[in-house]
């Protein structure tokens, strides 16, 4: 399917401060292309922060400083010629609470296309096709094809979350960053999102933050454990759960931290 050695995201000595508070300490990580990597660790250890670094969304908060290197597909994303717009197109994010925009389902899916079009209007047929492809890919097409005009914020949570994933797809992202995408969903919803992740894996690199150990075990190929802003351990998921190298990891997966 995809070259297992190819790296999607690499960081070297990445440090990040919120004003004076250091939220990431010397993080060095290699995330492989086309697989699902999960990010676990106790609350406040910097998982969300790390994830947000990958498409430089942290910078929108003003008082953030970053040092170190982040490369996506070998390209340093702090290079001068990197456009944030293009970067965010290729590394889209899915949030903890589904955040569809307060417009119709259809407009949500084509929102990205519309804001990235080069002058002139997009052909209706192009948009229609993009919507069908994206919604089919996330498994919403059958349910929603007759209700595309419906306001997206009125969908069920699970559908909203799938829509948020579908919204990224027309932009042909390489990487999908998910921040606890299932924490607002019930068991059914969680399973649906996990199945979707399996379906998307291979074509997309998926990085998922989760608090749910079982989910990390079930759904990810590799797993990263973080603690207090530091990366403690990164290995294949089975290894990390069955034979953790670091005692801190062992403590955490056995439930000895919060």
């Amino acid at each position: 399917m995809s070259d297992p050695q190819k790296l999607a995201i690499t960081t070297r000595a990445l440090n990040l401060w919120y004003a004076k508070f250091q939220a990431l300490i010397d993080v060095t990580v290699d995330i492989k292309h086309g697989i699902i990597t999960s990010l676990i660790g106790p609350s406040g250890c910097g998982k969300t922060t790390l994830l947000r670094c990958f498409n430089r969304v942290n910078e929108r908060y003003g008082y953030v400083t970053t040092t170190g290197e982040i490369k996506l597909h070998g390209k340093n994303i702090y290079d001068d010629d990197v456009s944030l717009v293009e970067l965010r197109k290729s590394a889209g994010m899915v949030f903890q609470r589904p955040n569809p925009l307060p417009i119709s389902v259809y407009e949500n899916v084509v929102f990205g296309l519309r804001i990235h079009k080069e002058g002139g209007d997009l052909k209706r047929s192009v948009l229609d096709e993009a919507v069908e492809v994206a919604l089919t890919e996330v498994g919403l097409w059958q349910d929603l094809k007759d209700r595309l005009d419906m306001r997206a914020t009125n969908l069920q949570l699970e559908q909203q979350q799938k829509l948020c994933i579908a919204r990224l797809l027309p932009l042909k992202p390489e990487i999908i960053l998910m921040d606890e995408p299932c924490s607002a969903l019930d068991v059914e919803g969680t399973r649906a999102i996990e199945e979707l992740m399996f379906a998307l894996k291979g074509r997309y690199t998926i990085v998922i933050v989760t608090h749910n150990m079982a989910q990390a075990r079930r759904a990810s190929d590799e797993c990263i454990f973080m603690l207090l802003g530091e990366l403690i351990e990164h290995s294949r998921t089975e290894e990390l759960f069955l034979t953790p190298k670091n005692p801190k990891t062992a403590d955490y997966i056995e439930g000895r931290y919060g």
Binding site: L84, R88, K89, G112, I115, L171
Partner: peptide, 25 residues
Amino acid sequence: RTFREACWNVGATRWQTIRRIVLPN
């Protein structure tokens, strides 16, 4: 703010975010 975040994460500029989402709402 989640609406704004949603926009930034598909690569919308601030002005696009303002014009398409913030102002209408």
